[in-house]
């Protein structure tokens, strides 16, 4: 069974919420990514989202843009990232999702990219700029490879469109809690419960909420309403600060654990 599906099933049985962490792959380098993945698995992270560095990340705020730049500067390419995931797989079964811009897939071809990702041990893809309307045979290829194609729902998505999207998704639905690019926010969107309820009316897939969640209180507040919460920029920001420190993994592990603990105490 796909590791994402399996993890959500387990969490449901345990009555727990999912804690998803996003980091930029290859930031500050791919060996650090490998070490962080293993440490996060121990710290209570349920799903790891790896941002594949792209030259033009137009859905990302400054924190994640800079991470992508560091990833590119450290020589991170999709094939090298897949090698890193293969090596993570030798020690961990943490579900891994690639957060990626479509051109990186398009360049090598959908079929080859998906087959390579599946072979390396990737569990899902979240393609930022590939809406269902342009997906062609993406969903079929993903299902055939045993990978989850994760679709996004935004606050601007009207309900009829939401219904169509969530019926086609797999793994989980990623609800973007606010309009904007990725980045840290001081407040959780006020209409979150209402929006999550709307999505839930149309799907039995788990719903994870992300974009802007930056501290344990917010993580907890979001996890209460949804099936999981995603923290990205706040973690990436810590990597930016400690990237060159020998204590990078220890510091990040402690930070991520504080968030995981908040989500798990609901």
């Amino acid at each position: 069974m796909n590791r994402i599906v399996e993890r959500f099933a387990q969490l449901k049985r345990d009555g727990k919420k999912a804690f998803v962490v996003y980091i930029g792959a290859g930031d500050p380098n791919l060996d650090a990514t490998r070490q962080l993945a293993l440490a996060f698995d121990q710290a209570g992270v349920d799903i790891l989202e790896l941002g594949v560095p792209f030259s033009d990340p137009l859905a990302d705020g400054l924190v994640n843009q800079l991470a992508a730049q560091r990833g590119l500067e450290s020589g991170t390419t999709p094939p090298k990232l897949l090698e890193t995931i293969t090596s993570i797989r030798k020690q961990s079964s943490i579900p891994v999702v690639l957060y990626i811009y479509f051109n990186l897939i398009h360049k090598v071809g959908m079929e080859k990219f998906i087959a390579d990702a599946a072979r390396a041990g990737v569990d899902g893809l979240l393609v930022l700029d590939l809406p269902p309307e342009e997906s062609d045979n993406y969903e079929a290829l993903m299902s055939k490879a045993g990978l989850c194609h994760i679709y996004l729902v935004a606050p601007t998505t009207p309900e009829d469109r939401m219904e169509k999207i969530v019926k086609r998704g797999a793994g989980f639905i990623y609800y973007i809690s606010r309009e904007g690019v990725t980045g840290m926010q001081t407040q959780v969107a006020s209409n979150l419960a209402e929006q999550v309820a709307k999505i839930r009316a149309h799907t039995s897939l788990p719903i994870a909420v992300g974009f802007g969640i930056s501290n344990p209180e917010q993580a907890k507040a979001v996890a209460k309403e949804a099936d999981g919460c995603v923290v990205g920029s706040a973690v990436v920001n810590q990597i930016a600060q400690h990237g060159k420190s020998p204590e990078l993994v220890g510091k990040l592990s402690a930070f991520v654990k504080s968030l995981a603990d908040a989500v798990k105490t609901i």
């Binding site: 137009l58 859905a59 479509f102 930022l128 700029d129 590939l130 809406p131 309307e133 342009e134 679709y151 996004l152 729902v153 935004a154 606050p155 601007t156 998505t157 009207p158 469109r161 999207i165 973007i176 309009e179 904007g180």
Partner: peptide
């Protein structure tokens, strides 16, 4: 109707922009 000129064009944007 989807904005395609043969194999070109289309609408490849983040979900937030699709409905707008």
């Amino acid at each position: 109707a989807q904005g395609h000129f043969g194999p070109y064009g289309g609408r490849y944007v983040p979900e937030t922009l699709m409905h707008p």
